[in-house]
């Protein structure tokens, strides 16, 4: 506990963060998976998921945040998102051309409809979320390094 208190913000912020971070993550997943039937999509949902981890990073310090999502995991997730998106686009060649919607369309207004749009949203969410969290982590930790040098 004493070690945990050294990093991050005060106890009030940490308690509230424990309550809210799961809800933010859940909201982000909802926004991503319902991107084709309601407002939202891969971009907004990916940024919300990245914000959940940034929230954790700011409140608890870098050790706790890296325990949840390590740096190597981040790069794996971002590469997975980019390759998945490209793969879905290449599968379109089965039907004729790049980015063709070859999967069954399903019934409109259902969650599992709209062919390639749902997997594409998930791929973009992985890419945007991991990329923006990597940017935020890099800038926050660079700031600490600069301060150390100035002292």
């Amino acid at each position: 506990m004493s070690k945990e208190r050294e990093q991050g913000m005060s106890l009030i912020v940490k308690t509230i963060t424990r309550l809210t971070v799961g809800l933010i993550l859940l909201y982000g997943i909802y926004i991503v998976t319902h991107g084709h039937v309601s407002p939202g999509g891969g971009f907004a949902g990916g940024v919300i998921i990245a914000l959940a981890f940034v929230h954790l990073l700011l409140a608890f310090g870098k050790d706790t945040a890296f325990k949840v999502l390590s740096e190597s995991m981040m790069s794996i997730l971002e590469s997975t998102g980019a390759l998945l998106f490209l793969l879905i686009a290449l599968i379109g060649f089965v039907g004729g051309h790049f980015f063709m919607n070859v999967l069954p369309k399903g019934h409109p207004f259902n969650l599992f409809s709209a062919g390639i749009i749902l997997p594409c949203n998930i791929a973009i969410c992985l890419k945007v979320g991991a990329g923006l969290f990597a940017i935020a982590v890099a800038l926050v930790l660079l700031k600490l390094a600069v301060e150390k040098e100035e002292k």
């Binding site: 971009f43 940024v47 923006l132 940017i135 890099a138 800038l139 660079l142």
Partner: peptide, 13 residues
């Protein structure tokens, strides 16, 4: 919008 955020982060770095 998302590209703008990424380029802003690059300039800040």
């Amino acid at each position: 919008i998302v590209i703008g955020l990424a380029t802003t982060a690059l300039i800040v770095a």
